[in-house]
Design a protein around this nucleic acid. Structure first.
Lengths: 222, 222
DNA sequence: GTATGATTAAAACAAGTGTTTGACTTGGAA
DNA sequence: TTCCAAGTCAAACACTTGTTTTAATCATAC
């Protein structure tokens, strides 16, 4: 019964964190939903924060490993010019989406949870998350830099940030806006296709060469 | 002294909400930072939730009004084809950025606060925010639809969602990633320029006509 | 001057927080 | 059967939460 309890807590917590956020969800909300005793969270995980870490570990590790595996494969197949832009984008944003319909589990709530986490500003949560994501960001930034030699490094990082934000936002709000009738945004596979084509085009946009401040902005930033 | 207290509370709360989120920030954190009594929040605003509403009101109303005013002006100037894509994008994402350096106030923290709010999944907060933003979303979706007649309506809504997400994410995380040395993302004016050119290019991306599932996906979705 | 209404202050409120305790129940191994 | 570690449970822990109360203070009009 031990494993069952742990899993039940993880599932319930993930669901509730997705809906209400980390701080606004109490342990009693979680244990109530999971139908277990309050003390079991601290028995199995140690603390509420550690529970969050466990969720991150369970879900994001496979996702980030898949991202990097996909990128590895793309780069080994590609010629000296590196993989195509769309493929890099797909390797970056695809895994979180596929964890939806993927075998193990997840469910729509997990997409919302990803969106939540990506935008949680709490220092501790952010630290735990950045630790997981940093290697991915570095690898993909490098890949994009090779595919887009006209952009300088800072611009590439900025645009990767845009892509991740677009993804997270769509995940968090997609459900809510699905009620917009004919103007409702797509979701699932179609949403992923939209995101990939949007992000690839955005990535490939020409870099404006200091349009508004032609000279003053050229100096190094402290 | 009354006005001073109210303003001090608003400023402190905005700053702290930006850093830690709504739920994780206590009234005592706020009143401590603002150097006022705990009771003054409930005296001046009525409740913690109402304080958040007051912040939204103070900041987002002018921003959303400016967005729509800019769009009005663009459309009155433009020919029958409507305004240019970049201009629409700029009218959408410019105002929140300019509230940074703009007269009244704001400060960098306000950008982070916007990012927070845009991604808060709490039902009450979201409701208050959507109320403010819905008109903007409708107007801009219509403008984009006219500028991009090849996209269907749902796709336009989806991409507006992407843009808002990219903006919010950059605002929330930009500060954190500014320490990335040569690969640091830009911020302020440069960040806005990057966002506009990224978003306009993404908006103009060709719509994939059900690439991966040519037939099966054509049926209506339940 | 006093009276008056608005603002501030200290203290207390009940409810909820994450966490810990210690007794109780299990399921197998010896 | 006896034993023991693993797990569960109700209860309590100390503390924080948003809110309210009541008294003190303030500015200002009379």
């Amino acid at each position: 019964m031990a494993a069952a309890t742990k899993e039940r807590i993880l599932d319930a917590a993930e669901r509730l964190f997705a809906d209400s956020g980390f701080a606004a969800t109490s342990l009693r909300d979680i244990t109530g939903e999971a139908d277990v005793n309050v003390a079991s969270v601290n028995y199995h995980f140690g603390s509420k924060e550690a529970l969050l870490s466990a969720i991150l570990e369970r879900r994001f590790r496979p996702i980030n490993e898949q991202r990097i595996a996909l990128l590895d494969e793309l780069e080994s197949r590609a010629g000296q010019h590196g993989p195509a832009l769309e493929d890099i984008v797909a390797a970056l944003v695809g895994p979180p989406f596929h964890s939806w319909t993927g075998a193990g589990s997840g469910g729509p709530k997990f997409l919302k949870f990803i969106g939540q986490i990506h935008s949680q500003a709490d220092e501790e949560i952010r630290a735990a998350f950045v630790r997981q994501f940093d290697r991915v960001l570095t690898r993909f930034t490098a890949a994009f830099e090779r595919a887009l030699p006209d952009l300088d490094a800072g611009e590439v990082t900025t645009r990767v940030l845009f892509i991740v934000g677009a993804m997270a936002h769509a995940m968090t709000w997609g459900e809510q806006l699905a009620a917009r009738g004919p103007r409702a945004p797509r979701h699932s596979d179609r949403l992923l296709d939209s995101l990939i084509s949007f992000a690839a085009a955005g990535m490939a946009a020409p870099q404006l060469a200091a349009l508004h401040m032609p000279v003053a902005a050229e100096g190094g930033r402290p």
